[in-house]
């Protein structure tokens, strides 16, 4: 009996100590971890628009400063119009706009799509012309290392730069990943809408292609406004996220 009691008391005390330690560690570090995730997202947005190079690793503070100075987070509705924060609905889409001084340089669309193994998350930056891709980054994926996992590498992501999401007539076609080399498998007229695939990662490429198509179609009304140069900068008061700094004409 005494022996059993000792076992139970021991197990109880051990559980108590372990859970206290874990809870302390988890709650104590939570703020830092959340902050890390946020900085990582911001870094990826800045990389997508080209403000941070692939081999640059600025400190968290300078990332945040750069982000606050150059990027504005907005929400747009299904017609592509800016939604004020207080009237934001569940169907509205997030949009990150890159300002250089007072003029818009590019906008960034968050990519959240299924990959072969799991979600692929990243950002696609599109120039102010509403059609040329400025950059692409991936901050989360579960693809096979060495195959589909190559999507996060700079050699693959660089291939997006300068490609277009519209055809020669300016109609929306999205961006696609070719199966193999673009020069070999895509007719010349469409090459501007394709990037080279990764060998051994056909499925990842296919999922990414359909993800781009769905997401960019949702954002098409915004892109149209950019193409027609309807997005115009209004006088901006420095700062706050509630600042309606972009307006329709």
């Amino acid at each position: 009996m005494n022996e059993q009691l000792k076992t139970i008391v021991f197990a109880f005390v051990l559980c108590l100590v372990c859970s206290l330690l874990l809870t302390a560690a988890a709650t104590g570090l939570k703020k830092r971890q959340v902050q890390n995730v946020l900085v990582d997202r911001h870094r990826n947005i800045l990389m997508a628009v080209g403000l941070i190079g692939d081999n640059q690793h600025p400190a968290a503070r300078s990332i945040e400063e750069l982000y606050r100075a150059k990027i504005k987070e907005l929400w747009v509705d299904s017609a592509g119009a800016i939604v004020p924060p207080d009237r934001r609905g569940p169907a509205d889409l997030p949009l990150y706009v890159y300002y250089e001084g007072k003029s818009i340089e590019a906008y960034v669309v968050p990519i959240d799509t299924r990959g072969l193994w799991g979600q692929i998350n990243g950002y696609l930056a599109i120039d102010k012309d509403g059609s040329t891709i400025r950059g692409f980054t991936v901050y989360h994926h579960s693809e096979t290392p060495g195959l589909g996992g190559e999507i996060e590498r700079s050699w693959f992501r660089k291939k997006f730069v300068g490609k277009k999401i519209t055809d020669q007539q300016g109609r929306f076609v999205s961006i696609a990943i070719a199966k193999g080399s673009v020069e070999q498998v895509v007719p010349e007229a469409h090459r501007i809408n394709y990037v080279d695939g990764i060998s051994g990662a056909t499925m990842t490429g296919r999922f990414l292609t359909s993800g781009f198509k769905d997401i960019l179609r949702n954002y098409e009304p915004v892109a149209v406004r950019f193409r027609q140069a309807l997005m115009k900068k209004k006088e901006s008061r420095e700062g706050g996220p509630d600042d309606r700094s972009v307006e329709e004409k």
Partner: peptide, 10 residues
């Protein structure tokens, strides 16, 4: 778990 939490934070 502690090691994991610390890595995530730092």
């Amino acid at each position: 778990i502690m090691a994991d939490e610390f890595l995530k934070a730092f």
